[in-house]
């Protein structure tokens, strides 16, 4: 039993270790994203300073707290963006679906291994950005290691929620070839409801309701509000529990929808 588990992990481990290599091949994009994120940070810093020009707190958040939250959210944001739509679109277009399904590993598990490797690599690549935000924009990081631990767990859980949501959403690419539009819709909705642009606390009740009914906040708002101190440590167990419920239901939904989509496509001879 243990040996089998170890062997399985080794296989998925080797899938995951391929990720940094392919990623670094596109290093120009690492730089582009770096510049774009700095630019976005500058805009947000000035925007929020102007918002708080009247002084005081808004929705119980001071300028410092809001900026802290927004800067961290901007650093993490690309993580909350979808890859699955393009991946599925590519697989369908190139007729690779059968090849992927015939491999002696679970397709979804292999893709998840790839995705978690991306998460790790991504966090590493974002360290310079954290330093810049700290030096120039006054980003403050928590000193309490328990906060960091709670954040890490929430991040991995939230990442999984979004991964499985995207898996189900990307199945739409099986039916339409317009992957660009699909991903743009997804990015647009996620940008707002994940809380990447504005903390959920700013939203009126009904919008907060929508945000809580969508999975995006689990991947971004929850971990970032823990790290930025908006959510107190005492609240963390409840947040984790909600994330786990999301995770389980998204996992089940993604596998079901994928199976239906594959059947439709393979019936058509794709």
């Amino acid at each position: 039993m243990m040996r089998r588990l170890r062997r399985t992990l080794a296989i998925y481990g080797s899938v995951a270790s391929m990720t940094p290599k392919t990623f670094l091949a596109y290093s120009i994009w690492v730089w582009v994203e770096f510049f774009l994120q700095i630019m976005a940070m500058i805009i947000f810093v000035y925007f929020w300073r102007a918002v708080y020009a009247g002084g005081g707190a808004l929705n119980g958040l001071s300028l410092r707290q809001t900026l802290n939250y927004i800067l961290l959210a901007q650093i993490i944001l690309p993580l909350a963006q979808t890859r699955a739509v393009f991946r599925f679109g590519f697989i369908i277009r190139e007729g690779q679906l059968i090849i992927e399904l015939l491999r002696p590993l679970d397709f979804q598990a292999a893709e998840y291994a790839d995705s978690i490797a991306r998460l790790g690599l991504y966090l590493l690549l974002k360290l310079p950005l954290v330093v810049i935000a700290w030096l120039f924009f006054g980003l403050q990081l928590p000193a309490n290691p328990a906060v960091w631990g709670a954040f890490a767990v929430a991040l991995v859980l939230g990442h999984a929620v979004l991964f499985f949501f995207d898996w189900a959403y990307a199945c739409l690419a099986f039916y339409t070839t317009e992957t660009w539009g699909l991903s743009v819709v997804r990015e647009g909705v996620a940008a707002f409801f994940s809380g990447a642009l504005v903390p959920l606390a700013f939203m009126p009740g009904w919008l907060q309701g929508v945000a809580n009914a969508l999975p995006f906040a689990q991947g971004l708002y929850v971990p970032i509000s823990i790290l930025s101190g908006i959510a107190p440590l005492s609240d963390v167990p409840r947040l984790w529990l909600v994330q786990i419920i999301w995770l389980v239901s998204m996992l089940a939904a993604s596998r079901l929808i994928f199976r239906v989509a594959v059947r439709t496509v393979t019936v058509q001879g794709g």
Partner: peptide, 13 residues
């Protein structure tokens, strides 16, 4: 999808 998708991004902003 293509011609309406950008509406969602604008809506977010």
């Amino acid at each position: 999808i293509g011609s309406t998708s950008t509406i969602f991004v604008q809506a977010a902003g």
